[in-house]
Amino acid sequence: MSGSTRDPTPLGRAVIVLLWIYAAAEVIFFILEFMRLAALGQAESDMGANLYFQTYGADAEVLLGLFSILYLLTYAMAGIVTLKWIYRINLNAKALAPDKQVSPVWAVGWYFIPFASLFMPFKAMRETWQISRSPDTWREEPVPALLRWWWGLYIASSSISLASSRLDMAAATVGDMALASLLTLLATPLTLALCLVLMRIVRRISETQTAKLPGATSSAEIVALAEVSG
């Protein structure tokens, strides 16, 4: 077994905390977006965006813009730590089953490759789930509906959020802006469900890997070794 294996539990706990923070930010963003939609409802749908800002929407847009900065920070923090956890569990899975097809690096890298990002990250997570439960016979291990829910929610929420963002940036009229807001409101419940499903996956994979990695270096052991060597 590779000496690079590590207990994924501490990272998993960090992921769950950050997902809760991100979910809270998502709820606040939903409320602000609803306020924006209410302001948009006061204007004619064919009114130009610039005239709308001057007449109706200055307060709502400023408030939404300021919170968007905090929202993006929580998204980035949750995303970075989640990807770090994904790398860690895939590294552990590769140590448990060297015939694992998706490497730890590509388990993260595929998220940033167009088209392949639609299915390869799911394959990496599926392999890791199977190996974590049954390293010796992992190919026969069934794939739970939980993983399919996670990936379906991820694709749906990401696609709707991307469409909303692009429409909002290109909006020329109040009608365009209202449609972008409606898409954002639609994406929110999907994103919240995604967070909850991902939290469950993080817990279950972290627990099963911890049980299957008796030789792994836990976070507590790392601290103890550092104290002794110091």
Rank of each mutant, 00 (worst) to 15 (best):
I16F: 01
F115E: 03
G152Y: 07
L185A: 07
W20C: 06
G230D: 05
E26F: 02
A220K: 15
R139H: 11
Y52K: 04
W138E: 04
L153W: 00
G79Q: 04
Q42N: 13
G48D: 09
E221A: 06
T74W: 00
A216Y: 13
V143G: 09
G57Y: 00
R88Y: 08
L83I: 07
A224L: 12
K100T: 15
S181Y: 02
L185E: 04
Q42Y: 03
G152D: 05
T128C: 13
Q209N: 14
E140M: 14
L196I: 09
S158A: 13
Y154Q: 10
W150Y: 06
L192R: 04
L91Y: 02
D99S: 15
R6N: 08
P114F: 07
D59T: 14
F119R: 01
A76K: 00
L146I: 05
W110L: 11
S161K: 05
D59A: 13
R204A: 03
A220Q: 09
A23C: 03
L185H: 01
R203F: 03
S229T: 15
T191W: 00
K84S: 14
D176C: 13
S181F: 02
A145P: 03
T173E: 06
N90A: 15
L194Y: 12
P121V: 11
L185Y: 08
A24V: 11
V105W: 01
T74C: 05
R139F: 13
C195M: 13
A95P: 08
E33Q: 14
L37R: 08
D7I: 11
A25H: 06
Q209E: 15
I16G: 01
M199V: 06
A95W: 03
A180W: 00
A211R: 10
S164I: 05
A58N: 09
R13K: 14
I113R: 03
I160T: 06
L190G: 02
G65I: 03
A178F: 07
I113A: 12
D176T: 08
L147E: 04
A226K: 10
G3V: 13
L185R: 05
R13I: 03
L198D: 00
L186N: 02
S45P: 12
G41L: 10
I80W: 08
M125T: 06
Q130M: 15
A43K: 02
I131C: 12
M77T: 07
A193L: 12
L96R: 11
P214F: 04
M177N: 12
Q54I: 15
M77H: 01
D99C: 15
L66T: 10
L63I: 14
G109N: 01
V102T: 07
P214D: 08
E141H: 11
S2C: 08
M1R: 14
I89H: 09
A49C: 09
E227Q: 12
D59R: 14
S157C: 08
V143T: 15
L40M: 11
D59H: 10
G12S: 12
L196N: 00
V27G: 02
